[in-house]
């Protein structure tokens, strides 16, 4: 017996895992450098296009795994380039508005550049499972969706280990918590910035391959994930990794349940209603630290 409620929760968890994966890079970059990057979703778009090219000459499983590696590498490099050329020169400015405007400009440039280079026709990434589906009693879904869920969770797990168990990861966290203290401890802040951007963008690139395989690859595909990632980040607390992970799942499930039981037209606004509620009750987000501590 299939249950609509269970089906919707599962739909929400799966899409939420992708939201988390995109948001995690956004929140990391914000945490370390205090940059609100509105072009973050476009890193996913570039990652997805990288996958299109890898899979064109390497089909099947190898192509898919290869495209994830290629997307992470290519977008990681793109992240470093944008950090050095676009964001780094602005970091010493006093106002955040400069950075926000520049990132919106970057978003427009990347989107239109990709339309110019790749064309506007949407492309599909080949499903390595041959679009097989499973029926697990209470709900049905595709193996690809379950795999994306598992893959996101594993990727987030590895990121958690990296940030908590390695010297470099600890340096990133230290910079995020207190830039000056980290500098005094002898951490190379410039190096940390570059690394954070490479890592955050690389993860967004991987998320782009998953997103592109589940849906489609087209130049404007980055806009919606950027919006969702911002909702997730604010929901979980700006700069908070745990917040981004849980925020993604909360948003995914809230959207599907709200869409199903309240009203479909408001599906995309449900996230913003939740943000307003959270900001009223916990101004720093669900997992955010209070100011001054």
């Amino acid at each position: 017996m299939e249950s609509l409620f269970v089906q919707q929760v599962v739909n929400g968890i799966i899409i939420g895992s992708i939201y988390s994966l995109i948001a995690i890079g956004l929140t990391m970059i914000f945490g370390v450098m205090k940059i609100c990057n509105f072009a973050h979703g476009d890193y996913s778009m570039v990652g997805a296009y990288a996958a299109v090219f890898v899979m064109a000459w390497l089909p099947g499983w190898f192509g898919w795994i290869g495209s994830i590696v290629a997307a992470a590498a290519a977008v990681g490099i793109l992240g470093v380039i944008t950090e050095r050329l676009v964001f780094r020169p602005l970091l010493t400015r006093r106002t955040d508005i400069d950075i926000i405007m520049v990132s919106i400009g970057l978003f427009i440039v990347l989107e239109n550049l990709s339309q110019l280079v790749f064309g506007a026709t949407p492309r599909m990434l080949q499903d390595p499972f041959g679009s097989a589906t499973v029926n697990l009693g209470l709900f049905s879904t595709s193996i690809l969706r379950l795999f994306c869920l598992a893959f996101s969770c594993i990727a987030m797990g590895f990121l958690h280990l990296f940030l908590n168990r390695t010297q470099t990861g600890i340096a990133i966290r230290a910079t995020s918590q207190n830039r000056n203290a980290a500098l005094l401890m002898g951490i190379d802040i410039s190096h940390v910035y570059t690394l954070t951007f490479a890592l955050g963008a690389g993860i967004a690139g991987i998320a782009g391959v998953l997103y592109g395989t589940l849906f489609a690859v087209f130049p404007t595909m980055g806009a919606l994930p950027t919006l969702k990632a911002f909702v997730v980040t604010i929901l979980g607390g700006m700069g908070n990794l745990r917040g981004a992970v849980f925020g993604g799942f909360i948003l995914g499930v809230a959207e599907t349940l709200g869409g199903s039981y309240i009203s479909m037209q408001y599906k995309n606004s449900i996230g913003f209603v939740i943000i307003i509620l959270v900001l009223l009750i916990r101004p720093n987000g669900l997992f955010g630290r209070r100011e001054g501590t």
Binding site: L4, Q7, N11, F215, T220, M221, L224, T256, S260, K267
Partner: peptide, 20 residues
């Protein structure tokens, strides 16, 4: 009577409802 917005990519919520 269900709707979606131009540019949406995930329709599983609506399709699950239709399936029911």
């Amino acid at each position: 009577h269900l709707y979606f917005e131009i540019g949406d990519t995930d329709f599983t919520t609506q399709i699950s409802k239709l399936k029911n």
